[in-house]
Design a protein around this nucleic acid. Structure first.
Length: 806
RNA sequence: GCGGGCAUGGUGUAAUGGCAGCCACGGUGGUCUUAGGAGCCACUGGAGAGAUCCGUGCAGGUUCGAAUCCUGUUGCCCGCACCA
């Protein structure tokens, strides 16, 4: 009979639906294992072939863990709030909730079609009021602990989404989602104080097992730098506080620069002889979009303040003050001391505006020609009075202490990380549970009134005036103040997409709880997530946000661990045939439905894992899929009919079977799925040379089961093995059975491969050398030569170093 | 500019100090066949009739031995980007 994948996959999916063999049991005596994948956004297009890569990988890991005796939690859900759904709803005049329901149904069908061992009783949906009740609850806790606040500030505004964006959502000056230009807009926004956790978000990376590039990217994004804050006086008597990482170069500060938005400029304006010029510069800087600001970063611009000067506190020298947009209002104090001799940007600016360049660290080239920026031991302080003769490294603590004693400065740590802009002017998101009362100010909704549900509205259109569509819903907006009972208005902005995903992994632990986001028992039992795999694109978004929320929940005693995820890995992207990104416009999109229809889910699963290094991007190839289908066909041919006999390995295949068990097991743990599959293919090739015994086949089906669960289950049943392959005990290997009795070793002469020889395994050096020297080619090479040195690497190689005999 | 990564047959890749190319795709030939775009078998890095020689982006180095380690260099990809 032919391998009828369609029939087989349907059959076993029905069995799993009925018998729920992948259900997780909170509180089980077995050791727990919590494997997590990023829950998908249920888009109208359905599953992309990119999805099965991480999903199948974690399915393989968790299926193996289950076979090894773990109580496995492998859940799935839907991150369903978001703009595409809202836009689709607007265009087609349907409610976003209806669109979401449809899309989730389609995703569910596709995920089941691929045979994943999810616990389907724990599905979460971020748009379900029973779920977002707790998202709102967490927001209220953040508010109560002073970590949520509303403020008016210039924010990133996407001109197409008509919505504000977090810093993390702006990529190269354009909207991460739609690619439209981002401009600055002054708006009143809810903010979350992620900066409060900046240091801990860095420090605690030391305690978790994240792949290194994730840690590095998070550290860079948080951007910790240590230095000092120093107070300069202005000739007006005002204090100008600057931040510097190089307080050692203070004697070389020959001018100062303020950001165009700096508050002192307004105060000084009447004193400035060139006030119109300064105002013009401010106006231009303010009108630049982020993209223009980055594009125009080639040449420095600026204006000198004519009428006010600064005073260098270390030597009392008067120095000029400039404004320039190379100093950012949002970082440090928005003002810098410029040391052109030892900073590339200051040097460039000084050259253009004719500022003095004074060397204070010797050891580099002429500072009139280029800045000398080394801050290690190579530089020695000069022209710096009491710092002279010290290295940069030694000078920093000396000057910092001096500044502190004089009361003009102190050590200071700065972060690039900004607070998280948490409001979105859109309909399809969690309502922010806050009420504005003219008497009481912002008042949080009582927890008993959660969830605050989204009202039914006629139009979800975003507005050009920057208000949320909810603001038009006067019935919903007008309410009473929970504090004084007077008339009040609800907040009409909604939460960003990242809210619901910041804690969903906790909800999986206890998804139907209506008393708490999850019970303490479930949180204690399942925390932390043991292994979380997801995309690199979420490193500075979801991953950072959810670590922040988790740390907060830990601080208020809700969760038992400091970190949500013990281990984090990441997969590469699946590209279209030819190596380009898959997109509708290129017409190279592969639909999983089509692949499953033509080759089956097991083949798709195998191929997507065999495609290449899991962490690397890989290009889809229709041809290569066939190889995986062929592999399953070959297994089918071997095992479709019952093989009788004892359940032990055959003599001919025993070593290969045990080696493959070891290899596949280790490769799954190391996410080297491609080589695990290659090893199984090798074993099947062996089985074509030496017919497999009942035991050989049993081991193969068990190894195959996590990768291609349907066919493994079907053949398991046909062979009449007990129970199910997917719940059988993962096979063990025996080192002693892996070794062959003989090994072919390489023979090198003076480091060059010259011959091979077959020697008994683990033979001692002398025996090996005797056999080697008896080789004809070796004997020939030895004529007239003497052996200077023999290197014997057990079971691998012999290298003879020869020279002419005297 | 800073940070991270990658470079191996016609293709995807494997080997992390020890016989370069496991496993696949593609290709060539054979076999079975009414037929084969199915299956099975064999071959498949390059040059050479062959013995052999050459070969892991490039140039050096360490080593008995380097795709692998070190130094330099080129190219590509990703992240951040005037962060003081």
């Amino acid at each position: 009979m032919k391998y009828d994948f369609a029939e087989i996959e349907k059959k076993w999916q029905a069995v799993w639906e009925r018998e729920k063999p992948f259900r997780a049991e909170t509180g089980s005596e077995k050791p727990k294992f919590y494997g997590l994948i990023e829950f998908p956004y249920p888009s109208g297009q359905g599953l992309h072939v990119g999805h099965p890569r991480p999903f199948t990988a974690m399915d393989i890991v968790t299926r193996k863990k289950r076979m090894e005796g773990y109580n496995v939690l492998f859940p799935i859900g839907f991150d369903a709030f978001g703009l595409p759904t809202e836009n689709y709803a607007i265009k087609n005049h349907v409610h976003p909730a209806a669109v979401t329901r449809q899309n989730i149904a389609n995703f569910t069908r596709q995920l089941k079609m691929l045979g994943y061992g999810f616990d389907w009783d724990r599905v979460v949906d971020t748009t379900d009021p029973d779920y977002y009740k707790w998202t709102q609850w967490i927001f209220l806790q953040l508010y109560k602990h002073g970590l949520a606040y509303k403020t008016t500030m210039p924010v990133n505004w996407c001109t197409s989404c008509k919505c504000v964006l977090a810093n993390e959502e702006v990529v190269e000056g354009v909207c991460e989602r739609c690619g439209a230009p981002v401009i600055r807009k002054e708006k009143s926004q809810w903010m979350l104080k992620i900066t409060e956790y900046a240091q801990r978000l860095i420090d605690d990376l030391d305690d978790v097992d994240f792949i290194e590039r994730v840690k590095t990217q998070q550290r860079n994004w948080i951007g910790r730098s240590t230095g000092a804050e120093v107070t300069f006086k202005a000739t007006t008597g005002d204090d100008i506080v600057v931040f510097t990482t190089r307080p050692d170069t203070l004697f070389g500060a020959t001018y100062m620069v303020l950001s165009p938005e700096h508050a002192l400029i307004k105060k000084w304006m009447p004193l400035l002889k060139n006030a119109p010029e300064v105002q013009e510069y401010q106006r231009i800087a303010a009108s630049k979009s982020d993209m223009e600001r980055t594009e125009l970063n080639k040449e420095k611009t600026g204006v000198k303040l004519d009428g006010v000067r600064g005073v260098n506190p270390v030597n009392g020298r008067e120095i000029p003050i400039f404004i320039s947009d190379y100093v950012l209002a949002t970082y440090g104090t928005g003002a810098i001391m410029a040391v052109p001799a030892h900073d590339d940007r200051d040097w460039e600016f000084a050259k253009k505006f004719g500022c003095e360049i004074i060397e204070v660290v010797s050891g580099g080239e002429d500072v009139q020609k280029a800045a000398f920026t080394a801050k290690d031991e190579t530089g020695i302080m000069v022209n710096s009075e009491f710092l002279n003769g010290l290295t940069v490294k030694d000078a920093i603590p000396v000057i910092t202490k001096w500044l502190e004693e004089k009361g003009i400065g102190k050590a200071k740590v700065n972060f690039k990380l900004r607070d998280w802009v948490f409001s979105r002017q859109r309909y399809w998101g969690e309502p922010i549970p806050m009420v504005w009362c003219d008497k009481c100010g912002w008042v949080p909704l009582p927890e008993s009134e959660l969830p605050l549900k989204l009202p039914e509205v006629d139009s979800y259109e975003p507005t050009d005036d920057g208000e949320s569509p909810l603001s038009k819903m006067t019935d919903w907006v007008n309410t009473t103040c929970p504090h004084c009972g007077g008339p009040a208005r609800r907040e009409t902005d909604t939460m960003p997409q990242w809210a619901g995903s910041s804690w969903y992994f906790l909800r999986y632990m206890d998804p139907h709880n209506d008393k708490a986001l999850a019970s303490k028992e479930a949180l204690d039992y399942w925390s932390p997530v043991d292994w979380y795999n997801g995309g690199m694109e979420h490193t500075t978004l979801h991953l950072l946000y959810s670590r922040f929320w988790h740390k907060f929940l830990y601080d208020i005693g809700v969760v038992p661990t400091k970190e949500p995820y013990q281990k984090r890995t990441s997969h590469g992207m699946i590209l279209g045939e030819g190596g380009e990104k898959m997109s509708k416009s290129r017409g190279n999109v592969v639909n999983p439905d089509d692949v499953v229809k033509s080759c089956g889910a097991d083949t798709l699963r195998l191929y997507i894992m065999f495609i290449g290094d899991f962490e690397q991007a890989a290009a889809w190839s229709d041809n290569a899929v066939k190889g995986c289908k062929r592999f399953l066909d070959r297994i089918w041919n071997l095992a479709e009919n019952r093989i009788d006999g004892p359940e032990t390995c055959s003599h001919a295949n025993e070593a290969a079977v045990h080696r493959t068990i070891k290899k596949v097991g280790e490769d799954i743990e190391a996410m080297k799925f491609n080589t695990a599959i290659a090893a199984m293919m090798g074993l099947v090739n062996d089985f074509y040379d030496h017919a497999p015994s009942r035991g050989d086949i049993k081991a193969l089906l068990q190894l195959l089961s996590p990768f291609a669960p349907h066919i493994a289950e079907e053949l398991w049943e046909r062979q009449g093995f007990e129970g199910y392959a997917s719940t059988s005990a993962w096979p063990r290997y025996d080192e002693s059975k892996m070794a062959e009795s003989e090994k072919e070793i390489a023979i090198q002469i003076n480091g060059k491969l010259r011959a091979t020889a077959t020697v008994p395994v683990d033979a001692d050096d002398e025996t090996v050398l005797t056999i080697v020297k008896a080789q004809e080619k070796v004997a020939r090479a030895l004529e007239g030569m003497e052996i200077v040195k023999s290197i014997v690497i057990k079971n691998k190689l012999v290298n003879l170093i020869l020279r002419p005999a005297k």
